[in-house]
Amino acid sequence: MSAYTVHQGQLPGLFRLWAKLYKVHVPVQTAPGFYDFAPWEPDTEIAWDYDLTVNPLKRHLLPPREDLVVFDTRTYEARGVFQAPQQLLFGVHPYDLRAIAQLDQLMELGSPDRNYRRRRENTVIFALDPLRVAPDAFWSTLGAGRADIGFDLYWTKIGPAMFFVEVGTARGEELLLAAGEVERAGAAQHEAARRTREDTRRRADGHGLKFPWQELPRVMAKAWDAGIWREKSSMCLACGSCNLVCPTCYCFDMREELDESLGKGRRWRQWDACMLPAFAQVAGGHNFRGKHLDRYRHRYFRKGKYIFDLIGEPGCVGCGRCIKACTARIANPLAVFNRLWEEYA
């Protein structure tokens, strides 16, 4: 696989060029200790050493609210709505890359999600190796510290002003070379990148699953009646925060509304969450997950077993966002999985 060495000085020219073709999103510091992706502007300071962004990247592929159909109740006409801006996500950490790769697979299962697919096709992804590890992160022990697919370019910062850039796709390489010659990476740069990754991995490995992630579905299969479900869920606020900040949670609800003419309307989808009581409510007011316990357990079974059964890897990438977002401090896949391992392995 070809790789290049890029110097900091080349970046402004490249970004200016990319910004003409794409809406470019980069990691920035939004407040001391808080990072998020924001649209790139010429004076944007990229947070090269961010540990975790508050929000995952799914909103760029599956927006919180997205129109799907517009219709006319008088003529009975309906038309699909597709919005898919050309966008470039720069600086995506491998665990988030893994999450997007999961969404790619899950949105293709059954009836392919055409709105998602169009957005995804128009999205360029430049990955970035993390230099710091967030306190709640455990991606390393879930095998999400490194990704081999799902990126157009993969950036590793190997010096104060130098990057090792691995090519993932022809589109990525073209964009890298669009502003002129770029130096090919030599053995020294390959080695520097490897060392950088090793450094990060060493720090990340210290905190995580106490068992191989491949064992998760086997452990979960025995844990339906575990005490932890009641213990943790009694403090659940049913606010859905854990779902909504999760990079792999993708459930949505469908709504319709007419405009003020009462003749034209639209159907849209908006993020939903399995921790919300109304999520599993059906006609007649019946609810097949009416209790906190049912919903809490369901989320961990989704992450540890159901998704695994579909695609062969856990539906959790270990980013730690839900741990941070849960005000009641009950959302914690790492603590739950480790405890179930101790009790049921």
């Binding site: 407040a31 606020l237 606010c239 859905g240 925060s241 909504l244 969450a273 919300l276």
Partner: peptide
């Protein structure tokens, strides 16, 4: 809506008030 404000707060992408 029957869900709490947190849902739309997360949709808006806010940093949680409690985190601040």
């Amino acid at each position: 809506p029957e869900y709490p404000v947190c849902v739309e707060c997360k949709m808006a992408g806010n940093v949680c008030r409690y985190e601040r």
